[in-house]
Design a binder for these strands. Structure first.
Length: 260
DNA sequence: ATGCCTCGCACAGCGAGA
């Protein structure tokens, strides 16, 4: 099973890229982030025309997540929204079960600028995610937390083109990394680093300043696997070439191959 | 120190992204 996370940066602007990806890669599960559309505006007819179906949790203009699967194997909904704060209005979390695997599509807050309420919201959201992830692990099922985590795990050039250039970014702060590690340390496996312990793996390249052309990227899209999912981990990688296509998202699809 | 591009919104620039 190929399970993919892809921050689209707008599903309408990216519809040709999305359909092309479904046709070419035929993912078994495609987790989307930043669809940036209301529930009513989700282009489900285009998705169905490509042979897929799914669940979505939209929001007008910002955020928004979805989980797509081949129409013959639809996802069973489990949860819309992250628990822990009834006042949170952002559409950033969607959870379903597909072929016995629990899959979450998550879009973690960016958190910039550091020192503002946006950064506090990021850390609070990560704390809620940790609490929920702990409950998921207690089910002892194969579980995959897939999404745009908006955290660069280390200063290593394998993870970021320039730690110095990004030093003051919310993606790089010690608090952001600690919150990420606290979730990892519950017992999850970072699939990309399990398969590529050393070596540059980037999933995002900024539109500005020629970042793509000079390969100035970083790694923020992650798939975290429970032990039962990690047992079945066959491979993990990034479909980097989609970042170089016309009207591309600034993220590349990031995937795991799970046995069975 | 800020903008660099790009999106959505709404029809002009602006908020947000990372």
């Amino acid at each position: 099973m190929k399970i993919v996370t892809y921050n689209l940066n707008g599903i309408r602007a990216r519809l040709p890229r999305l359909v092309e990806y479904l046709d070419e890669q035929k993912p078994d599960v495609l987790c989307l982030q930043e669809i940036k559309c209301d529930d009513d505006a989700f282009p489900i007819m285009d998705v169905r025309a490509a042979g897929y179906d799914g669940l979505w949790h939209g929001q007008k203009g910002f955020n928004g997540v979805a989980i797509l699967t081949p129409a013959a194997a639809p996802p069973t909904p489990r949860r819309v929204g992250l628990p822990g704060d009834p006042d949170d209005t952002h559409s950033r979390y969607l959870e379903a079960e597909v072929n016995g695997i629990v899959v979450a599509s998550l879009y973690l807050p960016n958190g910039n600028p550091v020192g503002t309420e946006k950064f506090a919201y990021k850390l609070a959201w990560m704390d809620r995610l940790r609490a929920h992830a702990q409950e998921l692990l207690a089910e002892e099922k194969p579980t995959i937390l897939a999404g745009d985590w908006n955290v660069i795990p280390t200063d290593d050039p394998d993870d970021v083109f320039s730690a110095r250039a990004m030093a003051h970014d919310a993606l790089m702060q010690p608090e952001s990394r600690q919150a990420f590690r606290r979730i990892l340390n519950l017992g999850f496996t970072d699939a990309i680093r399990a398969r590529t312990p050393e070596g540059q793996v980037y999933t995002f390249w900024d539109y500005t300043a020629g970042c793509w052309q000079r390969d100035a990227g970083f790694r923020i899209d992650h798939l975290l696997l429970s032990a039962q999912a990690a047992d079945r981990l066959f491979d993990a990688g990034v479909d980097k070439d989609y970042r170089g296509r016309e009207k591309a998202s600034d993220h590349a699809p990031t995937w795991v191959e799970i046995e069975g």
